[in-house]
Computed example of a mutant assay.
Amino acid sequence: MADVVSLHRQEPQGLVLRELSGRVLRLTLNNPPANVLSIALMQALMAELDEVAQSSDIRVVILAASGALFSAGHDLKELTGHRADGDKGRAFFDETLRLGADLMLKINRLSQPVIAEIDGLATAAGCQLVASCDLAICTDSSTFCTPGVNIGLFCSTPMVAVSRAAHRKQAMEMLLTGETIDASTAKDFGLVNRIVPKQYLQQVVNKYAAIIASKSPQALKIGKQAFYRQADMGIAEAYDYTVGVMVDNMLAPDAVEGMGAVIEKRTPEWKDE
Rank of each mutant, 00 (worst) to 15 (best):
A91H: 13
G86K: 10
F92Q: 06
I115Y: 02
I107W: 00
R90A: 12
F93M: 09
R83A: 15
G86Q: 08
Q112I: 02
A84G: 06
Q112H: 04
S111M: 08
E117I: 02
D85T: 09
N108Q: 09
G89A: 11
S111P: 11
R109N: 08
T96A: 07
G89M: 06
A84L: 05
L97W: 04
G100K: 10
E95I: 13
R83Y: 15
D87Y: 00
T96I: 06
K106Y: 05
A101W: 13
M104C: 15
F92K: 04
L105P: 02
A84S: 05
L103F: 06
Q112L: 10
D85P: 10
K106W: 05
A84E: 09
I115V: 09
V114C: 07
L97K: 03
R98V: 14
V114G: 07
F92S: 03
L97P: 02
Q112V: 04
K106Q: 08
F92M: 07
K88D: 05
A84I: 09
R90V: 13
V114N: 04
T96R: 03
L110P: 03
I115R: 06
A84M: 07
L103E: 02
L97M: 14
N108Y: 02
T96K: 05
A91K: 13
D87F: 01
G86M: 12
G100P: 10
K88T: 10
F92N: 07
I107E: 05
A91Q: 13
F92Y: 14
D85H: 13
H82L: 14
A101D: 14
N108W: 03
G100F: 08
K88V: 01
A84N: 09
Q112W: 01
L99W: 00
D85W: 07
L99M: 06
D94N: 00
E95C: 13
D94K: 02
I107R: 03
K88A: 11
L110I: 12
L103N: 04
K106L: 04
A116V: 02
A116S: 07
F92C: 07
L105N: 11
R98K: 14
K88I: 03
V114E: 02
L103W: 00
T96P: 01
F92A: 01
Q112A: 09
I115H: 04
L110A: 03
I115E: 01
L105M: 12
R109I: 01
N108K: 07
N108D: 04
L97Q: 09
A84P: 01
V114I: 11
L99C: 00
R98H: 14
L110K: 05
K106S: 06
A116E: 04
D87S: 04
P113Q: 02
L105D: 10
L103K: 00
L110N: 03
A101E: 12
L105I: 08
P113K: 00
R90I: 10
A101K: 13
P113S: 01
N108T: 05
V114W: 06
A91F: 12
E95P: 13
G89S: 08
Q112D: 02
D102I: 09
G86N: 14
K106G: 02
M104Q: 10
L105R: 10
R109F: 06
A91L: 10
D94F: 00
G89Q: 07
G100Q: 10
R98M: 15
F93H: 11
R83I: 15
R109D: 03
N108P: 00
R98Q: 15
E95R: 15
A91W: 11
L105F: 09
R98Y: 13
L97N: 08
L105V: 04
P113G: 01
P113H: 05
D87K: 00
T96L: 08
